[in-house]
Simulated assay, not measured.
Amino acid sequence: MSLKGKTLFITGASRGIGREIALKAAQDGANVVIAAKTAVEHSKLEGTIFSVAKEIEAAGGQALAIQLDVRDEQAVQAAMKQAADQFGGIDILINNAGAIKLSGVETLDPQRFDLMYQVNTRAVLVCSQAALPYLKKSENPHILSLSPPLNLNEKWFASYAPYTISKYGMSMLTIGMSQEFEHYKISVNSLWPKTIIATAAIEFSLGGRELLSRARKPSIMADAAYSILTSEKRKISGRLLIDEEILREVGVTDFEQYREGSSEEDLMIDLFVDA
């Protein structure tokens, strides 16, 4: 299977994992919609929807850059239509946009919780609804959300339950939509990294650049996503997958290639994953 000629709609694709998945698909000759908020270069963060569009085209794909706030359902519907009009349909939706604040109930501003819930959980619902009419017409449709396994160990709730709730909501929608959309032959899955990934979210939200030496490159998530998105109709569906596990299933054995830092550093296991 290949993504050649397929159209991917990726939210939050101006940097990090979303960008990496976009570039991986572009190598096959895919059409990629970069739907993200960043249209102007940020002083601390590299990448905009337009810079990634140029990278996609240089890699062999076709690109459409759309500035989008996934909290706005009307804007999401308009963006899906624009994408489908440009490329003749939509085959794959990747819910990659995210918001994070690792604070407990006592200290978290309720407006910050609203942001996390809307960008994480609610956006999966909104984007999936808007993509559904187009996915129904695809030969091998997929919805993939970047969300974790449902690990109910109390330690994942003790210090930042609001964030945990917003991410687990995404995963529960994956399970539900896989069942609900079965008769449309749409594969619906979630994907999460086993270790932290070298992204801006890690650098600025979880502890600074020193943590990046204990991270893996975003390419491991792109390769894992690719293995899911190129699978046949419903062969993989309703699963909350870990990047390393799905890659092992398809025969990958060398994971040193994905290290960001020195092999002497211990990799840091990501949130919601038991060591």
Rank of each mutant, 00 (worst) to 15 (best):
D85P: 00
I236P: 08
E256R: 15
Q118L: 12
D72A: 02
K137H: 04
A201T: 01
A84G: 05
E106W: 12
I92C: 11
L68K: 00
A201I: 00
L115P: 02
G60W: 05
A84M: 07
I100S: 15
G61I: 05
Q179C: 05
Y134A: 03
A22T: 06
L206G: 03
K155L: 07
F113Y: 14
K4C: 07
I220Y: 01
R248Q: 15
Q82F: 08
I143C: 02
K155N: 06
V126R: 09
R216M: 12
D28E: 09
I228V: 15
V105I: 15
G5W: 04
R259C: 12
A26E: 00
L247G: 11
E46N: 14
K167I: 01
E203N: 11
S237D: 05
M177Y: 11
A36F: 09
I202P: 12
R19E: 11
I165T: 03
A84S: 14
T48I: 12
A65I: 01
T121Y: 15
P149S: 07
L267Y: 07
G61T: 05
R234C: 11
L23A: 07
K217P: 00
L132I: 02
N151E: 05
G261C: 10
A59V: 00
Q82T: 08
L23R: 02
E57G: 09
Q129F: 06
S14R: 03
Y168C: 01
L144G: 10
V52Y: 14
E46R: 15
Q257I: 13
I269H: 10
E244L: 13
G207R: 07
L267I: 05
H142T: 05
A161H: 06
S227H: 09
V76C: 13
V124M: 09
A84V: 03
K136G: 03
L247P: 00
L45D: 07
I236H: 03
K194M: 08
R112W: 09
A224L: 13
L132K: 01
A13G: 05
S262I: 00
S231E: 10
D274I: 08
S51A: 10
Q257D: 04
I143K: 02
S263V: 07
E20N: 13
T121R: 15
S2D: 07
A53I: 02
A97Y: 13
A26S: 12
P193T: 06
I92M: 12
D254A: 14
R214N: 11
R214D: 03
A158M: 04
A65D: 01
K4N: 13
S187R: 06
H142D: 06
M1L: 09
Y168E: 00
Q67H: 06
I21H: 05
V252N: 13
G29N: 11
L23T: 01
R239G: 04
F113S: 01
L8Y: 08
K54S: 12
T174L: 02
Y134V: 02
I34K: 13
K194E: 10
E210A: 14
T38L: 11
T7A: 09
K44D: 08
R19V: 04
G89N: 06
T38G: 09
S103H: 13
